[in-house]
Design a binder for these strands. Structure first.
Length: 256
DNA sequence: TCGATCCTGTAG
DNA sequence: CTACAGGATCGA
């Protein structure tokens, strides 16, 4: 989500209000609906983010729902005729620039829709409270990590920041969500807000700099991707386990 | 609540 | 060669 937010901010600055001459779909399997038709001579009126989802509002009335998944990226290039890398879609702007959807793994998706759907709570929305989190947690038998990945509960937490938030809150990722009591949930709530707002800031800064953004962001992480390395707090080696086929990193000393 | 699937790239 | 990767969805 921090990356998605960075992508949206950049796109708003550079391309909001711009006229799209046409869109070219270079890999049709990633798109649903007639994306090319909807973009034809349409203005990009607004760029909106909900969780990890991007919504590109068009003056034609259509909305492009873009999901970057693992390796997708969306950015403006100076000339739409010069494409580099795994470009799946290019929007040719009237001023000669282009917006590209680049995605080497091609897991990202674009769909033409007409209304923005509902998602879970935005962690950075000031209305998101610990009480609300407690309400969602109540009765849930899901392991805490999987609960945090559920986009219908809190929208935007991914594998990295779910692990980081649990570390900060001192919660074992396998712990059943419904068994956590209020004080601990309050701690988790503030951990989520702190982790996400910090990440949104640092990723946006790194986003405009050369080099691999994720590599730089890794330096700031407490547990994610650090299996075997000493915990930055208690020195115990960071552990890794699989939950629903995905890696979870945690510290057995700090997380109970 | 798993595992497989969608894809490709990279590290070991 | 195998394992793994920031995500979501589907069917068992």
């Amino acid at each position: 989500m921090p990356e998605v937010e960075a992508v949206c901010k950049k796109l708003r600055l550079e391309a909001e209000g711009c006229l799209i001459r046409r869109a070219r779909l270079l890999r049709s399997s990633i798109a649903k609906g007639d994306v090319e038709q909807a973009c034809n001579r349409a203005t990009l009126t607004r760029v909106e983010r909900r969780g990890k989802n991007i919504f590109l509002h068009l003056s034609s009335g259509g909305i492009l729902h873009v999901h970057l998944r693992m390796t997708g990226n969306l950015y403006v290039i100076p000339d739409y005729r010069f494409l580099v890398g795994a470009v799946r879609v290019v929007w040719e702007l009237a001023d000669g620039r282009g917006i590209v959807f680049e995605d080497p793994r091609a897991l990202g998706r674009i769909a033409l829709i007409y209304a923005v759907p509902e998602y879970g709570r935005e962690p950075l929305d000031p209305d998101f409270t610990a009480t609300e989190l407690a309400g969602m947690a109540k009765g849930s038998r899901k392991p805490a990590k999987l609960f945090l990945l559920d986009q219908d509960k809190v929208a935007g937490l991914g594998n990295i920041y779910a692990a980081e938030a649990l570390f900060r809150a001192g919660i074992d990722p396998r712990r059943q969500m419904g068994t956590l009591r209020k004080p601990r949930l309050e701690k988790l709530h503030s951990a989520i807000v702190a982790v996400m707002s910090g990440a949104v800031e640092s990723v946006y800064e790194l986003y405009s700099q050369p080099g691999n953004m994720i590599e730089a962001e890794r330096q700031t992480l407490m547990v994610y991707g650090r299996e075997g390395e000493p915990c930055r707090v208690c020195e115990r080696p960071v552990k890794r386990l699989a939950q629903s086929g995905r890696s979870t990193y945690y510290c057995s000393g700090c997380q109970k």
